[in-house]
């Protein structure tokens, strides 16, 4: 179920990128895209009844773990996503300083 939500989130992110004219909104759309993507990646490794891939004292002898690899990937992806978002926001500030607006349509330059 969450897999579908992830795909819808992806699509919504793309939709936002297409329709929004505000720099901040575009970054938000990017974030939504990334969240969708991360969910999707996790859902790829997940199957019903799987266990979190963490060894504890209660882990059964023959554990039925979900695939841990996607989770590792997502960790990396999240960090990278934050980096991009931060950079985008910094750029948004720069853009604001330069043009006095965050709306792409109101900037003279095209």
């Amino acid at each position: 179920m969450l897999q579908f939500a992830a795909i819808i989130l992806l699509m919504l992110g793309l939709y936002g990128l297409l329709t929004q004219r505000n720099v901040i909104k575009i970054i938000i759309s990017l974030n939504i895209l990334e969240i969708g993507l991360n969910l999707f990646i996790i859902s790829v490794g997940y199957f019903e009844g799987g266990l979190a891939p963490i060894f504890t004292s209660e882990t059964p002898a023959n554990p039925n773990f979900v695939d841990p690899l996607p989770q590792a990937l997502v960790l990396t992806a999240i960090v990278i996503g934050v980096g991009t978002t931060a950079l985008g926001l910094a750029l948004a500030r720069k853009i604001y300083q330069k043009y006095g607006t965050l709306n792409l349509d109101e900037m003279g330059e095209n």
């Binding site: 970054i27 991360n38 997940y46 891939p53 979900v66 960790l75 999240i78 948004a92």
Partner: peptide, 28 residues
Amino acid sequence: FVVMQAPDVAVTEAVIGSGLVTSLFVFT
């Protein structure tokens, strides 16, 4: 993430995704 048995991802996302990113947005 938690539902999908990825607790460590969930923690990261909670801290970075909703904490850090939101504050970055707000500051901007």
